Amino acid sequence: MTAAIAEKGAPAAPAPGTAQPPPVRGRRRRRERAFDEVPRWQIYLPLGLYLLFTLVPFYWMLLFSLRPAGSDSLVPWPMTFDHFAKVWNERAFSVFFQNSALIGVGTLICTTGVALAGGYALARFDFRIKQGFMLALLCSQFIPGALMLVPLFQIFKNLQLINSPLSVVIAETVFQLPLSIILISGFIRNVPYSLEEAAWVDGCSRLQAFRIVVLPMLRPGLIAVGSFAFVHSWNHFLFALMFLMDGDKQTIPVGLSTLIGADSVDFGALAAGGVISAVPVVIVFAFIQKWLISGFSAGAVKG
């Protein structure tokens, strides 16, 4: 009887003459060999063209910010930093920079904290409207921010938050939360549930198990979500323009718009302000790129 059961559970033998599919390892090796046989110029030429297309606007901005006013040279020589001094001191970009940093850090903290709680609930609990809630989060990404300006302005006016950086932080957090919650829930699903159960057996509460076991494994995901929230709030123009009235509370995107006059544009000052706005974001991404890439790859495996 044991032999019969074994024969019943064993996979059926292939018919004679039937071609067998190659093993997975063999297919992978053949793909690697095919990739090695591709001429290098077919790989590096498209990548070089894409890199050139991406870097030329940045070089043009850097060129205008470093060359003297009235010069048409394609090389920033003689080099001058007068445009940077002008926008930083005369145009109050030092104040704009501080305001943008304050709003960016506040949005990062609020978005990451709320998304962490919401993502954990979606990943670990089953409730009746879970699928409908996920669908609502996805559909909310199609709503433009400009459509919500009037109701948000009325709400902040009733709460006496107009002309306060807190209004911009709340608005940015609200519009960043749907995507952030979806991403965080994907990261948490990749953490084995058995690890939390083992912590419960050892006497930990759910909160302690989350803090000790789950949270350290979410570092790449939290960095990915937080970096997106920070960059979006750093570059966003509309909310700061509508909810902040005083000039000393404006952010860098609004400050850049003040450099464009009705009859003339100071290209040197505008380019210098753009460099000041771009450099912090580039530095942040240069330091967190390894966690950012691993975070995206971890969140894209399961959903």
Rank of each mutant, 00 (worst) to 15 (best):
T2D: 14
A6D: 14
A6C: 12
E7K: 06
E7Y: 04
A10G: 10
A13K: 08
A15E: 10
P16N: 05
G17H: 11
G17D: 10
T18S: 15
P22R: 07
P22S: 06
G26V: 01
F35Q: 14
D36M: 12
L45E: 13
P46N: 00
Y50I: 03
Y59T: 00
M61R: 05
L63F: 04
S65M: 04
D72S: 11
L74K: 00
P78D: 07
E90C: 03
F93M: 05
F93Y: 03
F96G: 02
F96L: 13
Q98E: 15
N99L: 11
S100G: 06
S100R: 05
A101I: 03
I103G: 11
G106F: 00
T111C: 02
T111E: 06
L116F: 14
G118C: 11
F125R: 02
D126T: 12
D126P: 07
D126H: 10
R128E: 09
S140Q: 07
S140I: 05
F142G: 03
L147T: 15
P151E: 05
L152F: 15
L152M: 14
Q154F: 15
Q160V: 08
Q160C: 05
N163H: 08
S167K: 06
V174T: 05
F175V: 01
P178D: 05
L179D: 04
L183C: 10
S185I: 02
S185W: 04
S185A: 13
G186H: 06
N190H: 13
E196Y: 11
W200F: 15
V201S: 14
G203V: 11
C204M: 11
L207E: 09
Q208D: 13
A209D: 12
V214D: 00
L215K: 10
L215Q: 11
L222F: 15
S227G: 02
A229L: 09
L241A: 10
F243V: 02
L244Y: 04
L244C: 08
D248F: 15
P253N: 06
G255N: 01
S257E: 09
S257D: 12
S264G: 04
V265H: 02
D266Q: 01
L270R: 01
V281H: 09
V284F: 07
F287C: 06
G295I: 01
F296Q: 13
V301D: 12
